[in-house]
Design a protein around this nucleic acid. Structure first.
Length: 583
DNA sequence: GTAGGGTTAG
């Protein structure tokens, strides 16, 4: 095919560049290329095709274009595969890849990085695994770019063991490879591993960059590692890493999830630019701390001076309303979503609405919403929210009905059984409680075990219920006994409801007194400085009894106690909780 | 022309 050096200086090329990713101008540029007699220029056609792929032009058009080119080469295929892998329909790149193989045109290392990225983004695990074997056949398994793409593919598909294998076998690990592995752990909810790998990275003498810090902060947010998060902020400042909107958002999220809403807001105000993700993160931050009014104020400001809210923003807004009892505001936001922003409510939004009505005690409204406003068959998440409401407001009949429906939808989920047995217990149906427990034992369903984490002098300590592994165990239990005695004298009465059947059989003897958050608080009161706020991170929801006990503890110990549970924050102070018992 | 980064319900 004729290639003239002039084709890249031709007016047609300028025309093409100007067209960019817009479809109609691309058609015009195509016409221009033909009219100027440059339709044999491979570089121009490659560029045109790549633009067409990024524009997610109709597949018909791109295929037509492709077929009009005689003997397309490896470079051309790699270009369009890369362009499609970054477009809104990455599956096209798989199509082009298999077309390439069938011709056959030999793939290159560039081909594999792109096509693996598509598999990762599509979670196309079977296809990705077969492509793994292709790249072995073509001898690209030692290419560090291909290896990193492969690692990311396995991590995105959730196979961290294989991802780690790829990582460990890399002869040379640059910062990008470390970042990919750290991010992989974090994205899969294994924040501890992400943090551990970060320490290994430092030991290996690899200098972290901004992307490392973003993933690391997410990991800190996940596990509640405040001191490491603060270290990261320091590092960023001292090493002159630019506080851009991505890094800033990660920092906001870390502070919010580690209990420091005010610091989160400071970072938000510091950012040079605010996109929809940064706004959403800050609204969510207020929401999870029960600061519904602040969340709504910020949302109003966003509507008047910020970017357009997206569906994630509305999840944050509705959740904030739900956790603060802002029913009218929430209802209006829900309507506004489709009316003003043409956003289609998804399951998450429905769940928030049901949760919002439910928490507020408007169980009829919640049921009405499920019946009338949800088009398809409501999923398990919606019923879980409904069940939570029944439990909170002690509507046992409805609760049992809902729980049984949940079990038919997701019979393999142990937490539904726990909820159902709780509802039966609250309703006094002990016979049913035993039945449910037996089903669980027969099916070997085990509920998650709870733990609580507290940092003292930047060192994290983890406690589990009835934990005796800590070196200070004796002192902690003695201290806790004494504390429980004091709060009983102050008027605390154990909420025995909560003892029932949240526990496995052998754990019952520990009952309520030694739930992990109580152990962590006792340990914190013993070891933290006088005026230090006690901060606990718990992986499950708190039970009613702990919630009540901690209110008393905040008075007796004269201390502010902040607990993050599975869903939100509780700030205990002077005998009250910021959630206003609204959780 | 190649690999890695932030927000969301229960």
């Amino acid at each position: 095919m004729a290639e003239t050096s002039s084709s890249l200086h031709s007016p047609a090329y300028v025309f093409l560049l100007r067209a960019g990713h817009r479809l109609r101008p691309l058609h015009q540029a195509h016409a221009h290329i033909i009219v100027s007699g440059l339709h044999r220029s491979r570089s121009l056609l490659t560029k045109l095709l790549s633009f067409a792929c990024s524009a997610a032009a109709t597949r018909r058009y791109t295929l037509l274009l492709l077929h009009s080119i005689p003997e397309p080469d490896s470079f051309l295929f790699s270009s369009i595969i890369r362009a499609s892998s970054r477009s809104s329909s990455p599956s096209s790149s798989l199509l082009f890849y298999f077309l390439m193989l069938s011709l056959p045109v030999p793939p290159s290392n560039y081909t594999f990085t792109s096509v693996l990225k598509s598999c990762a983004d599509l979670s196309a695990s079977r296809t990705g695994i077969s492509i793994h074997s292709h790249l072995l056949v073509h001898g690209f398994d030692q290419d560090s770019y291909v290896q990193t793409a492969l690692l990311v593919f396995y991590a995105k598909c959730g196979d961290l063991v294989v991802a780690r294998k790829v990582f460990d076998r890399m002869p040379e690990r640059k910062v990008v490879a470390w970042n990919a592995m750290i991010s992989g752990y974090e994205q899969n909810g294994i924040g501890e591993e992400a943090i551990e790998l970060f320490h290994k990275m430092r030991d290996a003498g690899v200098l972290p960059d901004s992307a490392t810090m973003v993933s690391l902060l997410s990991a800190c947010a996940q596990v509640g590692a405040l001191s490491l998060g603060q270290w990261v902020e320091n590092y960023v400042m001292e090493n002159g890493l630019e506080l851009n909107v991505v890094l800033g958002t990660s920092l906001i999220n870390m502070y919010a999830r580690c209990g420091h809403v005010r610091k989160a807001r400071e970072v938000f105000d510091m950012l040079p630019e605010h996109n929809v993700i940064a706004w959403t993160a800050m609204i969510a931050a207020y929401g999870m701390h029960g600061h519904g009014l602040e969340a709504m104020q910020l949302f109003d400001r966003m509507r008047s001076e910020g970017p357009l809210p997206n569906d994630v923003t509305f999840v944050a807004v509705l959740s904030a309303c739900a956790h603060s009892g802002l029913v009218c505001e929430g209802r209006e936001a829900f309507e506004s979503m489709s009316r003003d922003y043409q956003l289609v409510p998804r399951v998450e939004h429905h769940v928030c609405m049901v949760d919002m009505y439910g928490r507020a005690g408007l169980l009829d409204e919640a049921m009405w919403f499920i019946r009338e406003r949800i088009q398809a068959e409501p999923g398990a998440a919606v019923w879980t929210a409904m069940l939570g409401a029944c439990k909170m407001h002690k509507d046992f009949d409805l609760g049992v009905e809902v729980a049984e429906r949940l079990l038919t939808i997701e019979p393999e989920n142990p937490s539904h059984y726990v909820l159902l047995s709780n509802i039966y217990a609250l309703a006094g149906r002990m016979d049913r409680v035993e039945k449910v427990r037996n089903v669980m034992i027969r099916q070997r369903l085990k509920k998650q075990t709870g733990y609580s984490l507290i940092e003292i002098d930047n060192v994290p300590h983890v406690f589990r219920m009835g934990d005796t592994s800590h070196p200070q165990t004796m002192q902690i239990y003695n201290y806790l006994e004494e504390l429980m005695h004091k709060i009983r004298n102050a008027g605390y009465m154990p909420e025995t409801d909560s003892v029932l059947h949240e526990l496995e059989e052998e754990e019952r003897e520990y009952a309520l007194r030694f739930h992990s958050e109580k152990l962590a608080i006792a340990f914190g009161l013993m070891n933290a400085g006088e005026d230090v706020v006690i901060r606990i991170v718990k992986n499950l929801r708190m039970c009613r009894d702990c919630h009540l006990a901690i209110k008393f503890m905040s008075v007796i110990a004269c201390r502010e106690i902040i607990v993050r549970d599975k869903h939100r924050f509780h700030h205990f102070k002077d005998g009250e909780c910021s959630c206003k018992d609204y959780w």
